[in-house]
Each structure stands twice: as C-alpha cells, then as structure tokens.
C-alpha cells in the first residue's frame, strides 16, 4: 500500500439491518488531499463516511495514521475525524459561538464559557475561515440556511482534526455558498487535512477535488484523479446520463446533460 497513506481502508464491508450496503471497498489516501465521494442515491456514500468515522460497525480494516480504527477509543476517534452530517441539525437555539466551540469537545473543552486559550484560538480561526465571526452571538435558529451551513462547517474545522468527513455540505445552498464551502474545504486540504466530501455535484467535484471515488450499488467502481474517475464512460455507466464538458480558467467543467 501507499507508504504515505494516512487513511487506509481494506476490504471494507458494511451491512445495515442484514442488507449489505458496502462491499469490498479499499483505498489509501495521504493527508493534504481533497477527495470527492460521488455516486447515485443509495450507493453507500453516507454509509462509507459513517464507517470511516467509526459511527457504525464495519468488517475489513480501517487504518488512521499508525492506528487501527477499532483499537481507538471513542474520544481518540473523535480527535482524528471531524464529522459533518447532512442537514446541520441544532436542536436548541444556541449561540453560534457555543456551537462552534462544541468542535473542541473532544479536546476536553466541554464548557464554552471556560475555553483554554488554545481552544479559543481554534474557535476564532474556524469562525474567521468560514466568515461567521460577526454573528458569533446570534442564535443558530435565527440564521439563514447558508449561514447555518457555515456554522456547521466552522464547528468541524475548529476540531482541527487530521481528517474531515463532510456529507453533502453544499446541499440546498445557493451557488455563492456552495463555492464558499468548497473553497473553505479546499483551503483546509491545502493546509494539511485529508478532506473527504460527499457530493452530487460532479462539476464541483471535478473542479475542487484531487481525487474522486465513485460508488455504485455499494461497490467502488472508480478511484483516481477527476479526469480518470469522472470519464464520460464512467458517468454514463454509473449515473445513466450524458455529459457536457468544457474548460474555464484551466479548470474542468462537467455538466450532466441528458438521461441515457
């Protein structure tokens, strides 16, 4: 396997409620990478993220750094993976700053009123990276969907974990926020994180990701640089659509065009 790999999956299988949702998925990724996870609905993308974060049981092996995932305690896992689920749920109208501070929970910073300087700095950095510093005192429930998604992202970045797992962070956002979120994650990857993002937007995947993993029916069907993994052939086989391609500012543009 790749000697510089930071996160490795070997023969990963996941069964949910007796049904196999993931079959024999293997990959090895270094840090400082942006990986897009794409595939049709029900392909097992979210399941793969949850298995990587250790939130559901899987068979096979997951290696993170020098450790096997199953050897790590819940807290040790929490320090390695920042997990951003779909929907950005916050059940109570908490102040934005307190929600972001929850990102420091695995570091032992359980009281947002008494953050150590190290934790306070991490929260401030995450809030400035997502441009939410100005509404730190507002309640999350008073924010727009786009603002709330940035708060959720800030919470995950504040953890400063080596791996970020984001499940459709751009869903239901307007174009500007979609670009903001992807760019923020791109910066996180450039600063040394391994960022793994589930997305349905092949265009954003092609533009921002270093590598793309294509899942279909629980199986890995392609893994590689966007140009390889998102070939016309592959997109046709997996998504049953034709694509329009172009180039702008030396970046690839992929637009799903018509059903096959």
């Amino acid at each position: 396997m790749n000697p510089t790999a930071f996160l490795t999956a070997r023969h990963l299988d996941v069964a949910l409620g007796g049904r196999k949702v993931l079959r024999d998925v293997s990959f090895a990724w270094p840090r400082r990478q942006f990986v897009a996870l794409v595939g049709p609905n029900g392909a097992g993308k979210t399941t793969l993220l949850r298995a990587l974060a250790g939130l559901i049981d899987s068979s096979g092996t997951i290696l993170i750094g020098d450790d096997t995932l199953t050897d790590l305690s819940l807290r040790q896992r929490a320090l390695r993976f920042g997990y951003l689920p779909q929907g950005h749920v916050v059940h109570w109208p908490l102040p934005v700053r307190d929600v972001v501070a929850l990102g420091r929970y695995p570091h032992g910073a359980t009281d947002p009123d008494r953050l150590a300087p190290r934790d306070r700095d991490a929260v401030a950095r995450a809030m400035s990276a997502t441009a939410i510093t100005e509404f730190g005192d507002r309640r999350v429930t008073e924010l727009s969907g786009g603002e709330r998604s940035r708060v959720a992202l800030a919470r995950v970045l504040a953890l400063e974990a080596p791996v970020v797992l984001a499940d459709e962070p751009t869903a239901s956002l307007d174009p500007r926020y979609q670009l903001d979120v992807m760019r923020t994650l791109r910066v996180a990857a450039d600063q040394g994180m391994l960022v793994i993002v589930v997305t349905h937007d092949l265009g954003l995947a092609a533009r921002f990701a270093d590598r793309v993993l294509v899942l279909s029916g629980g199986c890995l069907v392609a893994e590689g640089p966007p140009a390889e993994a998102l070939s016309d052939q592959m997109i046709g086989d997996v998504f049953r659509v034709t694509t329009y391609r172009a180039e702008h500012e030396r970046a690839a543009i992929i637009v799903p065009w018509a059903g096959l």
Partner: peptide
C-alpha cells in the same frame, strides 16, 4: 451535563464528538 450540550447536535454528531 457537558454531554447534553453535545447532544444538541443530534445523537450521531454527539457520538462523533466522543459522547457514549
């Protein structure tokens, strides 16, 4: 008490933050 605050983000996210 601290776990209740983490639980504000939902059970799965709380678990991802290290809450049993």
């Amino acid at each position: 008490r601290a776990a209740f605050r983490a639980l504000s983000l939902g059970e799965e996210t709380a678990q991802s933050l290290g809450v049993h």
